[in-house]
Structure formats: structure tokens, C-alpha cells
Amino acid sequence: MIEDLPALVAAAVSAVATAATTDELRTLEQTHLGKEAAVLQARKQLGDLPKEDRKDAGRAINEAREQIEAAVEQRRTELASSERAAQFDSERLDLSEVVVGERPVGHRHIVTQAWEELEDVFIGMGFRVAEGPQVETDWHNFDALNIPPGHPARDGFDTIYVDHGESGSTLLRTHTSPVQIRTMLAQEPPIHVIAPGRVFRRDTADATHMPVFHQIEGLVIDRNISLADLAGTIEAFTTAYFGSGFSSRLRPNHFPFTEPSAEFDIQRPDGSWLELGGCGMVHPHVLRAGGVDPEEWSAFAFGFGIDRLALMKFGVDDLRELFTNDIRFLSQF
């Protein structure tokens, strides 16, 4: 029997090497290496051998088994590889043929993008974000901001009034400045807040005007706040938001709620100027309206439009585009 081993091995290796599938290989493996396999059956004859021959015979049987196992393993690897190759070949996909656009892509509105970017810049400078109602009392929107009834500046705001409460007592806020008053009344100084928000004017819509638009307001109340703190804050914002090549300047202007007042301009790297917004040292009447003692605290405030920055960033030339809600516009950004 032992002497038959080489032939058995040769037959098994030959059969295994030509197995066509892994299933066939599994059957062959069973035949040549299973319990009934001839090679293993040889073990049963070991007891019949003389003691001194048993060791060699045992080794021969093991070697035979290992040779067949190696052949099976080799064939299995070959078959697995070719079957994977066949699978890959049959599964081929042309990804350039995939239909795109089936999953809609959402976009944030560019006003939101500018708004959040501005918030982030000021948060980085230590500001918190304050909010207030869009329908305001005339007191918060005007009186408290040093614009008493009959003040000509009230006319300049083209205010939209609201039929709520006593006639003329409520309006759609014309600026975010009433948030200054609400913040002062709600918390003790020091105060470092910005107030982005929606504001309203009785303006006919055109390329540069909308009855609804967005502003951001800043208010800093602390001890020893001066015009230099205002100029420095504007400058720090300018470089943070626009970039390191940009700078800013203040020049005198007039607003009822600040004294001294200023307009702030941004200088682009090419030297040209952009008028951005208004600012100044908060008027003592305004501080008092907010319950803040102007002798103990001083304050500056600034404000500018958000929408125009959004338009500039993307080169949009008509304010009305922001509000038409055409998906062909919204999905560009």
C-alpha cells in the first residue's frame, strides 16, 4: 500500500490541477483528502508494518497528504482569482454613464452665507449676537435713539407702520439700532454685541433698493471706550472679513444716535474706496434711554448692510435677485 502512494499522489495532483470550478475542487478535495481517501486509508495499514518501518511509512503518508493539500490550495487560489476576474468583468460599470442630479443639492441663501460669515468674524473678536423683534415700537425705533416725534430724520427713514396697538405706535423697524436699546435694557455693561437682522423701508424695489433688507449693528459699551476703539474695531473687522490688503478710515458724518458720528470706508488693495456704513460714539441720550450712565460708561456703535456685501462677493448686480427665489439663482452659490 505504501508503495502505491506516489501513484496516488500523482493522480490526485493531476486531478486537482485540472479542476474547473471551486465546487469541483471541493469534491476532489473530499475524494483525495477526506476520511475515505486512499492516502489516508494507508494509515490503517501502519499497524501491520514492522515497528521499525512504521515511522518512515507514517512520514511518507503525511508527505503524500501534504502534497495533495498543497495542490488543492494552489488550485483554489488560481480558481478564486479567475472567478473574481470573471465577476469583475461581468460587473463592469461605466461611471460616466451615471445619471447625475437625481439627488437634489441644497444651497444656503447668499444673504445667510454673508450673515453667518459676519457673525463668525465678530464672534472671533469677542462679540455676542443680540436680536430683537422686527415689528418695533416707535419708542425703540426712534425716540430712544434720539429721534423724537417730529424730528426730520423720521421722514428720512420712509417708515412702514403697522396696524397694531395705538395708531402710529408700532412699525417695521427701519434699522437694527433698536436692538441696542433692548440690549442695554436687558443687561448691564460692559456690552459687546452685534445685532444682525431684517429691516424695512417704504422703498420701491429696484436694483439697489428693496423694502426688505438686512443690516448688522455693533454696540460696545465699556469704561473708557473712545473713537480709537471704534476705528480699531472697524479696522480689525475689515482685515478679518475682506482680507489683509484692505484697510479702513472714519470720516465725519451725522446720525442722530451717535455723537461724534462717522461714516466708515473700506480701502481696497487697488486704492479705491468703498463706503460701507455709519458709526460713532453712542449719543448720551441713547445711553440714558437704555439706562446706561454716560458719565460712567462710554460706547460706540456701527452698522452696515449685509445684502450689499453678499451681492459684491458673488458679483450680483441687482438686489431684487435675492428675493425672487429662482432656483437657477439660489443653486449657483
Binding site: E119, F122, I123, G124, M125, G126, F127, R128, V129, P190, H192, V220, D222, I225, S226, L227, A228, D229, A231, G232, T233, E235, A236, R249, L250, R251, P252, E259, P260, S261, A262, M281
Partner: peptide, 27 residues
């Protein structure tokens, strides 16, 4: 004060950044 500042020059006030004692954050 505004008149004084106007004629002295706003730019002479210089620029400095106030340092708030709070962290900036969203609610």
C-alpha cells in the same frame, strides 16, 4: 467734541481694539 474731532482729524484718534472680558459665541 465732534467739532473738535472733525477739525483735529478723526485719524489722529488712532486705532486700538478693545478687549472684551467675555468670549464671543452664539446663543
Amino acid at each position: 467734541v465732534e467739532e473738535i474731532g472733525r477739525h483735529y482729524g478723526y485719524d489722529k484718534s488712532g486705532k486700538r481694539v478693545p478687549t472684551p472680558s467675555q468670549n464671543g459665541e452664539l446663543t
